[in-house]
Design a protein around this nucleic acid. Structure first.
Length: 210
DNA sequence: CTAACGATTCGCT
DNA sequence: GCGAATCGTTAGT
């Protein structure tokens, strides 16, 4: 079985992740391609929804106020690593770590549009790939891509998991900025417009009324 | 050691 | 709209 070749040219480079503004990186990740290659099974999706989490001064962030625990320590790695954790005992949530080592900024990927390996993803999900919930939502697309705790702390370097720039262009007009989901406990920080999604995509977990 | 929680999803009403 | 599922992590005793 042939699998799509992973061109190193397409892999996002370290300087993409090391930029200091995690909110900008969250926007820039829209349209990029997240893939996994697990036991020879290659699957990928176009990123359609993200949220920025700012290590310091963000009550919604696991690393708020410099907190370090065994769960969140991957957030302190330098940009370009993965931070994966278990939510509600069921769902594996995937983040892209950004900024320099020691600064716990990260972007939660919330949705992707299916791209490669739809048959494999269908087997993992157990629902038809036509339903938005196939890969819309932070716990569902990770299941489709086979992302789990084993990816926590991994470098997004292209072996088992990585992010590609395949040239999908995203204009500013195509992006909606909104409040983050499920962080009501964060007080004022819950009001920040740090969620971004593609306005015209069906692969988004929750949209604002137009 | 123990209790309570959670950056959610799914099925049922 | 509501509530169960489900378990690693966290904070407190």
């Amino acid at each position: 079985m042939l699998q799509p070749s992973i061109s190193v040219e397409y892999l996002l480079k370290e300087d993409f992740y090391l930029r200091p503004d995690v909110v900008t990186i969250a926007r820039d990740l829209l349209g990029k391609v997240l893939f996994t290659n697990i036991d020879g099974q290659f699957t990928s999706g176009i990123i359609t929804e993200t949220e920025a989490y700012c290590g310091q001064n963000d009550k919604a962030c696991h690393a708020n106020n410099g907190k370090v625990t065994s769960r969140n320590k991957a957030m302190y790695l330098h940009g370009g690593h993965a931070y994966v954790y278990l939510c509600y005992g069921i769902h594996h949530l995937f983040n892209v770590v950004t900024n320099r080592e020691g600064v716990a900024d990260a972007v939660l990927v919330r949705s992707v549009a299916p791209l490669d390996g739809v048959e494999i993803m269908t087997a993992r999900r157990g629902i038809p790939p036509t339903k938005p919930s196939f890969t819309a939502g932070p716990g569902t697309f990770t299941r489709a891509l086979g992302i789990s705790l084993q990816h926590n702390g991994m470098l997004l370097s292209g072996g088992d998991i990585g992010i590609l720039d395949k040239g999908f262009k995203v204009s500013d007009e195509a992006i909606i900025a909104a409040t983050r989901i499920g962080v009501d406990y964060a007080g004022e920080d819950a009001k920040r417009l740090w969620r971004f999604y593609l306005k015209d995509s069906v692969w988004v977990s929750k949209k604002l009324k137009q």
